[in-house]
Simulated assay, not measured.
Amino acid sequence: MLTQKELLKIYSGFNDDEIVVLATYESKKLTEIAVPILIDELTKRNLGKDLLDWVSMERNFFKGTELEVLKSKIKNSICSDCKTLKNDVRGFFIHHCSLTHNPSEAKLILCESCGKKLRRKNYIISATFGWLSLRSFIKVPLYFLGEIFYSFARKTQSRKIIEEFIFENTGLIRKLGIDRINEVITTNNRYQLSLKRDNRDYIFEFF
Score class of each variant (00 low, 15 high):
13 G>R: 06
83 K>T: 11
149 F>M: 07
68 E>C: 03
107 K>D: 13
125 I>H: 03
109 I>M: 02
23 A>F: 12
198 D>R: 11
149 F>V: 15
131 W>H: 10
122 N>M: 02
199 N>S: 08
156 T>F: 07
84 T>L: 11
3 T>P: 05
102 N>I: 10
29 K>E: 15
105 E>I: 02
32 E>K: 12
41 E>N: 12
135 R>K: 13
19 I>K: 01
72 S>N: 13
90 R>W: 02
65 T>G: 11
128 T>P: 03
60 N>A: 08
204 F>E: 06
41 E>P: 01
12 S>N: 12
121 K>S: 14
180 R>A: 15
11 Y>I: 13
174 R>C: 01
32 E>C: 03
153 A>L: 13
84 T>E: 13
51 L>W: 02
18 E>M: 14
21 V>T: 15
47 L>A: 05
200 R>Q: 08
149 F>C: 12
129 F>S: 14
64 G>Q: 03
82 C>I: 15
115 G>P: 07
12 S>Q: 14
137 F>T: 04
76 N>P: 00
117 K>Q: 14
170 T>E: 04
39 I>Y: 05
108 L>Y: 05
128 T>H: 01
108 L>V: 10
205 E>W: 12
132 L>T: 10
46 N>C: 07
176 L>Q: 07
92 F>V: 05
54 W>L: 04
61 F>D: 15
79 C>A: 02
155 K>C: 00
26 E>K: 08
112 E>A: 04
36 P>Y: 05
13 G>D: 12
21 V>G: 13
143 Y>L: 00
118 L>S: 13
147 E>Y: 04
23 A>V: 11
112 E>L: 06
194 S>G: 03
45 R>N: 04
160 K>A: 01
57 M>Q: 12
106 A>K: 03
167 F>I: 12
80 S>C: 04
118 L>M: 11
138 I>T: 10
156 T>K: 14
132 L>E: 08
183 E>W: 02
166 I>P: 08
129 F>E: 11
69 V>C: 05
195 L>V: 13
203 I>D: 01
7 L>W: 00
68 E>P: 05
163 E>I: 09
191 Y>V: 13
12 S>H: 07
55 V>L: 08
154 R>A: 09
23 A>I: 10
52 L>R: 07
31 T>N: 09
202 Y>D: 00
113 S>F: 10
177 G>N: 13
19 I>A: 06
111 C>K: 06
